[in-house]
Amino acid sequence: MRSLAVWFTLVILGIGLLFTAVTIPFGSPAMSDMDDYFIAHGQEQTGANNIVTSIVFDFRGFDTIGEASVLFTAVFGVSVLFRVRKKEEDYEYE
């Protein structure tokens, strides 16, 4: 019964995704005003030849701060999971 519901969901999602995939026009994006502005003015405003780098570190720097914080938090979580335990300090399951 559960497997039947899963297959039903997959078929519905598959029809939706494939129908969307054949209807989106490829190679000619509809709205590209922001990107055209970045390509036209990014070099004189940031001085970097690589527009992607100038977006990552200058135009959208807050994104990069959040991303660096997420990486730091993930490393913190891994280090907490694998910390060295004493003999009597064990997981309290039973």
Partner: peptide
């Protein structure tokens, strides 16, 4: 020798990712 603070931030993020992925 161009691009202002972008190379400094590149170096900073490079050091951070180096330490983070290695220590994981």
């Amino acid at each position: 020798n161009t691009a202002g603070t972008i190379p400094i931030m590149n170096i900073a993020v490079g050091i951070e990712v180096l330490g983070g992925l290695s220590i994981i």
